[in-house]
Computed example of a mutant assay.
Amino acid sequence: MSLENEPRLEVRDVPQDPLSAALMPLAPIFAVAFLLVTLFSFYEVVMRYVFNAPTIWVHETTIAMTALCFAFGGAYCLATDRHIRVVLLYDQVSPPTRRRLDIVISLVGAASCALMAWAAWSLAYKAFYMPGGQFRLETSGSAWNPPTPAIVKATLFILLCVMCVQFILQAVRHFRRDPHQDAHHGVPGEGRFDDV
């Protein structure tokens, strides 16, 4: 019986490599952070408009937490192979052509993340060191003045480096894959890093 006529099953929430598997336990923490952003925002609205006592910490806290969550979201999407694809063309080509496209896309993604990490490095460095080389954390400059800019810039740099490595690991995985195997569909568990 031919497997080509079998319905394709999506592989979801399966780490693609050991680095991705190490990132997976962090996902619930960032999910809770999104919930906290909602709760903090609700608290601010109640304090401001019901009790006329606005906070000095909610706005900056929620912006920083949201930025960190979105940055982690990119790494999580790569970890579970859920990044956006234009399937209109991708699904029309043969599995060997898809494999070649996967390799090229992974290498382009790695190069893009490497360039963004290079740009983020100078921002992160300046957020931790003054021009004279003295250590100091960049703060927001508000009345509360937390070091959230330094934290966000450093985290963004780290996550871009992680995503660059993830893309390289994906390229290797696709390169080693059987040219006739479909990497994004198949039996659950297929394509996991421990199967390669």
Rank of each mutant, 00 (worst) to 15 (best):
V86K: 10
L159H: 03
G186N: 01
E60F: 04
M130I: 00
G109D: 01
L3Y: 11
V162F: 01
F40Y: 15
L78C: 06
S94V: 01
A79S: 14
L39E: 14
R176M: 09
V58E: 05
V58N: 07
L169S: 05
A143P: 02
M24R: 12
E4D: 11
N52T: 05
P25F: 10
T38N: 15
A21W: 05
Q181P: 00
L137I: 03
E60A: 07
L35A: 15
G132Y: 00
G189R: 15
F30S: 06
Q170E: 09
A111I: 01
Y129V: 03
G191Y: 08
V165S: 00
V196R: 15
H184K: 12
K153G: 03
D178L: 03
E10Q: 11
R48V: 01
L169C: 06
A120F: 07
A67F: 00
L160V: 04
N52V: 03
Q170A: 12
T55F: 05
P7V: 08
E10C: 01
D81T: 04
F167C: 14
R12H: 14
L26E: 09
M163Y: 00
C77R: 14
W121F: 10
Q170M: 13
M163R: 04
D178P: 04
Q92M: 12
L107C: 06
I56Y: 08
A120M: 09
V32C: 02
D91A: 10
H185G: 10
F167I: 03
L35S: 14
D194S: 15
P95D: 06
L23E: 01
G109Q: 02
E10Y: 04
P25E: 10
C69Q: 05
A79T: 05
A119V: 07
F70A: 08
Y76T: 03
A117H: 04
I84M: 11
T66C: 02
S140F: 02
S106P: 10
A22I: 08
T62R: 13
F128T: 02
A127H: 00
P28F: 04
C161A: 09
T38E: 13
P15L: 09
Y129H: 11
A75M: 01
R100S: 13
I29L: 15
R177E: 01
A22P: 02
Q16F: 00
V187Q: 15
V37F: 01
A33I: 14
T55Y: 08
T139I: 03
K153W: 11
P149N: 07
V172T: 08
P15Y: 05
L3S: 11
S106F: 04
V187K: 15
R98E: 03
C164M: 09
P149L: 04
